[in-house]
Nucleic acid binder design. Structure first.
Length: 281
DNA sequence: AAGTAGAGCAACCGCCCCACG
DNA sequence: TCGTGGGGCGGTTGCTCTACT
């Protein structure tokens, strides 16, 4: 069955909104609320479809929208959240008060992608052959490199990571930390668990610590290996950073800024999986 | 000053999810 | 249980502005 269009095309206006239309929409919603978007334009006397009204309201007219340029902090947050959530713009927007998904999406495509590209070093894609990755596995393989950046190898191969309810997700819950002897440590993340964790953390505003580039380039550039005390398990996990990184001393996830940051990544990369499969280093 | 290219951004399109009857 | 419609989301388009030649 062919679905009827969301609005009658004939006679309805498209394109940029005029100040008069904005005024009508705002005053109507302030008086009556938006209720049924499809019925709203008729009731308000607008020659627009409900979808257009909803978009205009949510992306531009809503009183709680923060206008103006994005701050460096906001941009950093977007980058971090995008690493975790992928193109789930609404989920990212939910963590940035006053910003809309559309705005974030635009900023990403116009500014941040370029910004990331500028310091994204070349990857050795041979290290991540498709054979090494279950094509149906709900995981994203991220590779730390010498600059401390990481890229989404799995996304490169299988397309973008989808949301937590995507039917493409399988029930596989394996998380792995692997390393080769040359240059990179690859951490395969179970997205299903990760998203579940993120959803659980929605209410925790302090979930994401401030991490700037110096976290990677300064703090993690002095050591060789690191021992992580697995939180709550008493189990010690040795993670080798072949880019000669992390401080030698044992880290207990509390205290210094470095340790707080590692706690964050520990939550994202390690704790998100139920199993750790640690091959020999 | 005029033409062109690129960037930025608002808005649209089409698909998907979910509530409801 | 299934069909339907509304709302939400991500991708894309196209207009406007600005910088450059």
């Amino acid at each position: 069955m062919v679905r009827a269009p969301c609005c009658e095309k004939m006679g309805l206006k498209k394109g940029p909104w005029t100040p008069e239309e904005d005024q009508i929409l705002v005053s109507y919603i302030q008086t009556n609320g938006h209720g049924n978007w499809r019925a709203l334009p008729k009731l308000a006397g607008l020659l627009r479809c409900g979808k257009s009204c909803r978009l205009r309201w949510t992306n531009y007219l809503r009183p709680d929208i923060k206008r103006g340029n994005f701050t460096r902090e906001e941009e950093d947050s977007i980058i971090q959240l995008h690493e975790m959530l992928g193109n789930r713009w609404s989920a990212i927007a939910a963590r940035l008060p006053g910003r809309t998904d559309n705005e974030i999406k635009n900023v990403w495509h116009t500014h941040l992608k370029k910004r990331l590209k500028n310091y994204q070093p070349p990857q050795n894609s041979k290290k991540h052959s498709k054979n090494n990755l279950d094509s149906k596995a709900p995981s994203t393989s991220r590779t730390f490199n010498n600059s401390g950046n990481f890229s989404n190898i799995q996304e490169d191969i299988n397309g973008p990571v989808t949301g937590p309810n995507s039917p493409q997700r399988s029930s596989s819950e394996m998380s792995t930390v692997t390393a080769d002897s040359t240059a990179m440590t690859t951490i395969t993340i179970d997205n299903q668990n990760m998203f579940k964790q993120l959803d659980e953390m929605d209410s925790c505003e302090s979930f994401i610590p401030e991490i700037d580039e110096s976290f990677w380039t300064d703090d993690l550039s002095t050591g060789d290996n690191s021992n992580f005390d697995m939180e709550g398990t008493g189990e010690e996990l040795q993670v080798q950073f072949p880019f000669s990184s992390v401080k030698q001393e044992s880290m207990d996830m509390v205290g210094t800024k470095l340790e707080d940051d590692m706690d964050f990544w520990y939550n994202v990369f390690i704790k998100s999986g139920d199993l750790l499969d640690l091959p020999e280093f």
